[in-house]
């Protein structure tokens, strides 16, 4: 079965980040040989004075294939793990969506995109979770991480939000590499320009300091923009540009 696992608000200023916790949750699934996790995406939620986030208010989510007989056990372990690993003072939330049993998908996505624009509360999150069949739980503090956790799942489901956790692994000593080689080495599915132009596999790209992918149209995507030099027609985007995703 295919699931989404999303978490939010597990950290404090000094602790490891929510991304690392998500990574450990994904690893746990694979170590038990219960399934295989896909990339982790980071989803930016609303920054607002009425929302008590730690420093940036982002949720982390991954999709996974899991053997059905291990689903309940994994859910149990994930709950315990989150309760144990979350930092003091945090308000962790966990959302797990069984994609085959998901109802009212549109409502989940609507909630998710609303969480990027307006202040939502826990009651609204639980209401949407009940309508959609998403599993939602809180694990300490005020538990308001359930809002971001549910939103993170909806945003991942949309396929059009978030940047991938970590940097793409690409080996190019000269910093010049073709689009096709990038896809082959990193596993990124698509390379296209910030204007939406597909980059052919034989086109050269200059790798900047940041080689990060984003999620667009349900595919892991490396965005590039026109390069000013003659070496390559394209170059990877800066962190500053990518922060909008």
């Amino acid at each position: 079965m295919r699931i989404l696992v999303s978490i939010d608000d597990t950290d404090n200023l000094e602790s490891r980040g929510t991304g690392e916790i998500a990574s450990l949750l994904a690893k746990l699934l694979e170590e038990q040989e219960w399934g295989k996790a896909q990339v982790i995406t980071r989803h930016q939620l609303l920054v607002h004075p009425d929302i008590p986030y730690t420093s940036h208010n982002s949720a982390m989510c991954f999709a996974a294939e899991i053997k059905e007989q291990h689903f309940e056990e994994y859910l149990q372990i994930a709950r315990q793990f989150l309760a144990k690993e979350s930092a003091p003072g945090s308000d962790p939330g966990l959302c797990v969506v069984d994609l085959e049993r998901l109802k009212n998908e549109v409502e989940l996505k609507e909630f998710a995109f609303k969480a990027k624009k307006i202040v939502l509360n826990k009651e609204e999150a639980y209401e949407v979770a009940a309508k959609t069949g998403a599993y939602l739980s809180e694990h300490g503090g005020e538990g308001i991480g359930v809002i971001g956790a549910l939103a993170g799942a909806g945003l991942r489901l949309s396929g059009n939000d978030g940047r991938l956790r970590g940097k793409l692994k690409v080996n190019a000593p000269t910093r010049l590499i073709t689009s096709g080689e990038i896809k082959q080495q990193s596993g990124v599915e698509v390379v296209h320009s910030t204007e939406g132009q597909m980059i052919e596999d034989d086109e050269l790209i200059y790798l900047g300091e940041t080689i990060k992918a984003v999620m667009l149209d349900g595919r892991t995507t490396l965005l590039v923009f026109p390069n000013q030099t003659e070496d390559a027609k394209w170059q990877t985007c800066t962190k500053n540009y990518l922060k909008q995703f």
Binding site: G17, E20, S55, G166
Partner: peptide, 21 residues
């Protein structure tokens, strides 16, 4: 964390863990 960096210059308040947006 690397996932939260927004400035190309690493040592920037914008990349600091003690900044709250």
């Amino acid at each position: 964390d690397d996932d939260e960096l927004v400035s190309e210059e690493e040592r920037s308040c914008y990349n600091c863990r003690y900044r709250r947006w």
